[in-house]
C-alpha cells in the first residue's frame, strides 16, 4: 500500500542545503534518516508533510568516530552500524547491547539512533542509554549550533526541544573510561517487546552509578534515588536489595492492555536486581557477555 498523501522529496547534498530546505518549509518539513518511524506515520496519515528531506545524500553523517575524549555518532548511523562498530563495542558496550534488542534486523539495518531520539516515543530505547552515558544532542540550524544534554531533550511523548528549521547532526558521548553496565528490557517473550519497560545500569570508576528507566514515564527518566543510594559504595547483596526496594519510588508503572501495574512494578525490581549484578560483575571483568539475555 503506497502513501496516499503526496509530498515533495528532496535529497540535499550538504548540511547547508538541508538547513536551507528546513528553514524554507519550517514545520511543513520532515527529516528522513532511516525512515522506520516516519514512513509508518506517513502510511497511517499521522503526519502530512509538505516536504520530506532525505539526509542520505549528506556525506559523513553516518560516521561513528572518536574526537579527543568524545565519541560522535552521526545522524545516519544505523543501529546495525552502532552494534557492529568496534569503537562502540569497546567504549560504550551497553549501547551495543541495547541495539541488539531493537526490533528486527531489517529495521536495525535502517533505523538510526538519532531518528529514535527525534521520534521520542516513550519506549525509545536510545534515551535511557544516552542518559546513563551523559550524551548530548548536536543541533544545527541556519542560526547556529547547540548541544543539548539528553536529560533536557525529551519534553513529552513524541515531543523534544527540537525547533522547526533545526537539524540534528549527531549525538556526542564523553568517553566514560573503564566501566560496566547492563541494559535489561522487559519482554513478553524473547525478542518481543510488548511491555517494553527497561532498566539500564552503569557502574563507573569510584563506584559511581548511573541508572535509567525506559517506558515507565512519558520520557526516559534517571533513577536518582538509586544512584544516590549506591554512590561510592561497593555493591553487596544487601545493598542490591535496598536499591531494588527503591525502584518502586522511582517509577510509577501503569496498567494497560499489555500488562498490569503490579507485574510491571515486580519486573522493574527483577530487572533492577539483574542489571546491578550484571553491571558490577562486568566491570570486574566477569559476568555474562554483553548481549546475553538477562531476562
Amino acid at each position: 500500500m503506497a502513501i496516499a498523501h503526496p509530498f515533495l522529496y528532496e535529497k540535499p547534498g550538504t548540511v547547508k542545503q538541508a538547513l536551507q530546505l528546513l528553514a524554507q518549509h519550517g514545520a511543513g518539513a520532515r527529516v528522513l534518516a532511516g525512515g522506520t518511524d516516519l514512513v509508518g506515520q506517513l502510511v497511517d496519515g499521522l503526519v502530512r508533510p509538505e516536504i520530506v528531506v532525505d539526509l542520505k545524500g549528506v556525506p559523513d553523517l553516518q560516521e561513528i568516530r572518536m574526537e579527543k575524549d568524545v565519541i560522535h555518532i552521526g545522524a545516519l548511523a544505523t543501529f546495525t552500524d552502532i552494534m557492529e562498530s568496534p569503537l562502540i563495542r569497546k567504549k560504550l558496550p551497553v549501547m551495543a547491547e541495547m541495539t541488539e534488542w531493537v526490533a528486527s534486523r531489517g529495521v536495525r539495518n535502517r533505523g538510526t539512533m538519532v531518528g529514535n531520539i527525534c521520534s521520542a516515543v516513550p519506549c525509545c530505547d536510545s534515551g535511557p542509554i544516552l542518559l546513563v552515558y551523559g550524551g548530548k544532542v548536536l543541533v544545527k540550524s541556519a542560526r547556529g549550533q547547540r548541544a543539548v544534554p539528553i536529560a533536557q531533550w525529551f519534553t513529552g511523548p513524541r515531543r523534544t526541544v527540537l525547533a522547526p528549521g533545526e537539524l540534528v547532526l549527531g549525538v556526542r558521548v564523553p568517553d566514560p573510561g573503564k566501566h560496566g553496565g547492563a541494559f535489561v528490557k522487559m519482554r513478553r517473550y524473547k525478542g518481543e517487546d510488548l511491555a517494553q519497560a527497561s532498566v539500564t545500569a552503569l557502574l563507573l570508576a569510584g563506584n559511581q552509578w548511573r541508572i535509567a528507566f525506559g517506558s515507565v514515564a512519558p520520557t526516559p527518566i534517571a533513577g536518582k534515588r538509586v544512584e544516590k543510594l549506591l554512590h561510592g559504595k561497593r555493591l553487596t547483596p544487601a545493598l542490591v536489595e535496598e536499591a531494588v526496594a527503591l525502584t518502586d519510588q522511582e517509577t510509577a508503572p501503569i496498567t494497560d492492555i499489555r500488562s498490569t501495574r503490579e507485574y510491571r512494578a515486580h519486573m522493574l525490581r527483577v530487572m533492577m536486581r539483574r542489571a546491578l549484578e550484571a553491571a558490577a560483575s562486568r566491570k570486574a571483568g566477569r559476568g555474562p557477555a554483553y548481549g546475553t539475555e538477562l531476562i
Binding site: K11, T36, V39, D54, G106, V107, N109, R110
Partner: peptide, 17 residues
C-alpha cells in the same frame, strides 16, 4: 540492500539509490 537484509515493504525505494 548492499548485502544487508531490509524489510522492503517499508523501505522507501529512493533510499536504495
Amino acid at each position: 540492500v548492499d548485502g544487508a537484509p531490509v524489510n522492503s515493504c517499508i523501505y522507501p525505494a529512493f533510499k536504495a539509490q
